[in-house]
Structure formats: C-alpha cells, structure tokens
C-alpha cells in the first residue's frame, strides 16, 4: 500500500493502464507537460511522453469527437474535460454521438473510452465551475457513470473504466483531490456496478456517492455519539451500472433510508433510486425516503452561501430527525 492523494491515484491508474495496454492514450487540455490544472495527471508526460499523452487546444468538441473516432478504431482514449460544467460545451458528442453510436449502428462499433472530469463544489469557484452534474450523464442511455470517493477507489474504478468496452463518464470529486488514503501499489482493478458498504448499522441506511460519502460517514458517527443510533453507510460508486441490490439488502435490515446526493434536487440520482425502491422494496420501508441534495439554485461563490446550498452533516442530521 502507498499513501496517495486522490489526484495522484488518478495518475496512478492511468499509468497502470498505459503500461499494460499500448492503445491507452490520454488526451485533454493541459494534461501533458502542465500536469493538469488539478495536478491529476502530473508526471505522466515525463514518464510516457507525447506519443501517449496529448495536449489539445481549448476545444471540448474536438476532444470528445477525437476520442470517439479513435475509440471506434482500436484506441482506448482517456479524455479529460477539465470541469464537469464544461460537459455542456460538448454534450452533443457525449449524449448524441458516443452514447448512441453502438445502438444506432446495430452493434457495429464499441466505444471503449473514458471521459474524466472534475465534478462538484466546495471550492468556491462559483456557478460555472462547481456543479455536480452526475445526474446529466445518468440520464443518457448508453453511458456508464462512475464517481469514486477514495483514492483507492479512484485507482481501481478508473482502471476498470479504461478496460471497459463501453463509454464511461468518470466524475472526480474536485473537493477530494488533496485527500490522502491507502492505495494498492500492485495492479488494482475494481468491478463497475458494485456498491461498497462502508459502515454497518441496523437503525437506518445512508446512501451516498463521491463527495457525499464523507458527509454520510461523519453523519453516522455524530448520530452514534449523539443518540446511539447506528447508520449503515453505502457508497454507490457507480450510477450506471446501478447496484440497487446492495441498497435493498440494507433497507430490508434498517427500514429507513436517507439519500445524500450533491446534484441539485430535481431529477437527481436519488430520485431515480427512490423511485426504484418505492416500486420494488416498498415492504421494507418503515418511513418515507428522504433526500438531502444541493439546493436547486446556481451555486454561489461565497463560502458562507455555498455551504448552505450543499448537503452537509447538519442538513443530513436534520433530515434523519424527520424520519
């Protein structure tokens, strides 16, 4: 095991896959000699050079299109879109082209590519550099959606995303880039679509993803200390494929569910999860499912306001009190 920062785990995963597979390429703005604006690709250019690490102009449509054309013809590109907010500038390529090409052609192509982006708030960048948009990607059939919460998961899930034959949108939590954790030094790959039960408890279930996992864990500790209730905490890790089964098993045990999600409330991923559980696990529910989300507003820059808008420990505890 090595102690790595979340951002270093990104580079570790890409390095692992570049070494293993000669068709893996990294492409994006400032990903090369610059090492990435979040330093998530630091050292890769020095190690692998310009034949594997490709700096592009500020041309998101060109980045996504180029990745797609290459993916259809034998390359496994890892394309960086610097901030997930910028997915909107190349959403045609992602939602209309990449996601649909295999289906529209009756299976004539595979689309083995990864679109990495820095997602979420907490760093006071304001409304165009702080959004959590994982629900955008989840809403498009044909895409897979991954959002890791720890450095180890970054390495294992990014490696899996690169090896996957389908297009994966990989949301890196920008608030977590500097967080450190134990990461396996040897080859490490996790399966996509397997949620992770991070804390066991019989009183209620907290489901979280990426940045809200920490919130859920802290909430669970506070709950145990304050009122002696034990919360089970589930990190979904992926929105597509969505591991509903793990949540159902937990819910059957606890009967109560709070979802902590960073995307804004309307049609956030928790709404889909809630809908599924109401249809398929109604008998397990002892109380209404409660969702704690980012408020449906453009995110303010001021830390004071931004903190109020995002789902934190206090708001989650308050939601639990309403159960």
């Amino acid at each position: 095991m090595a102690q790595l920062m979340y951002r270093q785990a990104v580079a570790a995963a890409i390095a692992q896959e570049i070494e293993r597979d000669p068709t893996v390429m990294l492409i994006g703005e400032d990903v090369g000699a610059g090492g990435g604006v979040f330093k998530a690709t630091e050292g890769l250019f020095e190690r692998f050079g310009p034949s594997r690490i490709w700096d592009t102009p500020i041309s998101e449509q060109a980045i996504i299109g180029t990745a797609m054309g290459a993916a259809m013809t034998g390359i496994r590109p890892v394309a960086e879109i610097m901030f997930s907010d910028f997915l909107a500038t190349c959403w045609d390529g992602i939602a209309n082209e990449i996601a649909k090409m295999r289906y529209m052609t009756g299976g004539q192509v595979c689309m083995p590519l990864v679109i990495r982006c820095a997602n979420g708030g907490g760093v006071h960048f304001g409304a165009q550099h702080s959004q959590a948009v994982e629900n955008w990607a989840m809403a498009v059939p044909g895409l897979k959606v991954v959002a890791p919460s720890t450095p180890a998961d970054v390495k294992g899930l990014l490696a899996a995303a690169i090896r996957d034959d389908d297009p994966v949108v990989f949301f890196e939590q920008k608030e977590l880039y500097a967080q450190t954790g134990e990461v396996p030094e040897d080859e490490y790959v996790l399966p996509l679509g397997q949620a992770n039960v991070l804390r066991e408890g019989a009183d209620l279930t907290l489901v979280a993803l990426a940045g809200t996992v920490k919130t859920a864990l802290e909430t669970a500790e506070r709950l145990a200390a304050d009122v002696g209730q034990e919360a089970e905490v589930i990190d979904l890790r992926c929105l597509v494929p969505l591991d509903v089964q793990t949540v159902k098993i937990s819910l059957a045990k606890t009967g109560r569910l709070v979802i902590v999600e960073e995307n804004p409330r309307p049609l956030g991923w928790g709404a889909e999860l809630t809908s599924i559980l109401v249809e398929e696990a109604f008998d397990s529910l002892d109380a209404p499912i409660i969702r704690v989300t980012t408020e449906p507003i453009p995110l303010p820059s001021s830390p004071t306001l931004e903190r109020l808008a995002r789902p934190g420990v206090e708001r989650t505890l308050e939601a639990i009190r309403r159960l």
């Binding site: 068709t23 390429m25 034949s51 041309s59 449509q61 060109a62 980045i63 996504i64 299109g65 180029t66 990745a67 797609m68 054309g69 290459a70 993916a71 259809m72 013809t73 034998g74 390359i75 590109p77 045609d92 390529g93 209309n96 082209e97 090409m101 529209m104 052609t105 192509v109």
Partner: peptide, 25 residues
C-alpha cells in the same frame, strides 16, 4: 464507413479521431 451523422458538424471532430487513430497505430 464509420457512420452517417444527423447532428450538423458532429462528425468532423470524430473524423479527426479516426485519422488520429491511424496515426497512433
């Protein structure tokens, strides 16, 4: 023939990708 595209302009960057791929390979 790697596709007929119905969103105007979408495939020009994709053509860059198939060309880039040839170069890489």
């Amino acid at each position: 023939h790697y596709g007929s595209y119905a969103i105007v302009g979408a495939h020009l960057p994709i053509a860059c990708g198939t060309a880039w791929s040839a170069k890489l390979r």
